[in-house]
Simulated scan of single mutants.
Amino acid sequence: MYRFTLAWGNPHIPCPGDRVLVSIDTPGSGIPAGIMALWKPGTGYAVFCQPLLPERKSRRWSLEAKARVRRANLRRRLDRKMPLFAASLYEAEIAARPAYFDGQ
């Protein structure tokens, strides 16, 4: 699915009328005849093509997955910055914010 738009395309000159003249959604990839009938070369208007992607429902992370990733990131960060004290700091941080590291 594509959206073809005949809109003002010259950034150096102010638009003399409507910014968007016509917009047509079409399943094919060819420029619709309705837009080609209105378009004239040299007027400052241009044909724009935008692919329309299907809307996807956003997926939510489970509490277990959030907890696993948060704990792994904390472990990785501590091992990189303070490897000698990483184990004790890890336990202290988990005890200080248990709800966060349980995925809440």
Rank of each mutant, 00 (worst) to 15 (best):
F85C: 12
E55R: 15
M1F: 03
G42I: 14
Y2A: 02
Y45W: 07
N10L: 10
A99S: 10
S88M: 12
A46F: 10
Y45R: 02
R80S: 11
F85K: 10
R80W: 11
A65E: 09
P16N: 05
P98Q: 06
T26Q: 04
G42P: 04
H12A: 15
L89E: 07
D79N: 11
T5P: 00
I31E: 00
D25I: 07
I31T: 08
P83I: 13
L52A: 03
S62F: 12
I13Y: 03
L84E: 15
F48P: 02
A92S: 13
G28L: 09
S58G: 08
R76H: 14
K81N: 07
R59V: 14
F101H: 10
A86M: 06
Y45Q: 03
L78Q: 02
A92Y: 09
D25W: 02
W8V: 02
L21D: 00
E93H: 11
Y90V: 09
A37Q: 13
G34C: 06
K66I: 12
A96I: 08
F48M: 09
G30V: 13
T26F: 05
L74T: 03
K40S: 11
V69W: 10
E93T: 15
F85L: 15
G34M: 05
Y2H: 08
S58E: 11
R75V: 09
L84W: 14
P41K: 14
G44I: 07
P98N: 07
F48E: 08
F4E: 00
M36Q: 13
T43M: 09
I35W: 02
E91H: 12
V47H: 01
F4P: 00
V22F: 02
D102L: 15
W8C: 00
R60W: 07
P83E: 09
C49K: 15
A33W: 02
T26Y: 05
G34V: 05
V69C: 08
W8F: 02
K57N: 06
E91Y: 10
W61G: 00
T43C: 07
L84D: 15
Y100I: 02
A65P: 00
E55N: 11
A95W: 09
A72W: 07
M82A: 14
Y100N: 01
G103D: 11
P11K: 13
R77Y: 15
R70S: 12
N10I: 10
V20M: 04
I31N: 00
A46Y: 09
D18N: 01
N10E: 08
I24C: 01
A95N: 11
G30W: 06
M82P: 00
V20I: 15
V22S: 03
D25K: 06
V20E: 04
S88G: 03
S62C: 12
A7N: 00
Y100V: 02
S62I: 13
P41N: 11
I24A: 01
A96M: 09
L6G: 01
R97T: 09
P41D: 09
A96N: 09
S23E: 04
R59I: 13
G42K: 07
K66E: 08
L74F: 07
V47S: 01
K81R: 12
D25L: 06
Q104Y: 15
P98R: 05
E91T: 14
L38Q: 05
P41E: 15
I13K: 04
R75H: 10
I35R: 02
W8Q: 00
K66M: 12
I13L: 10
V47Y: 05
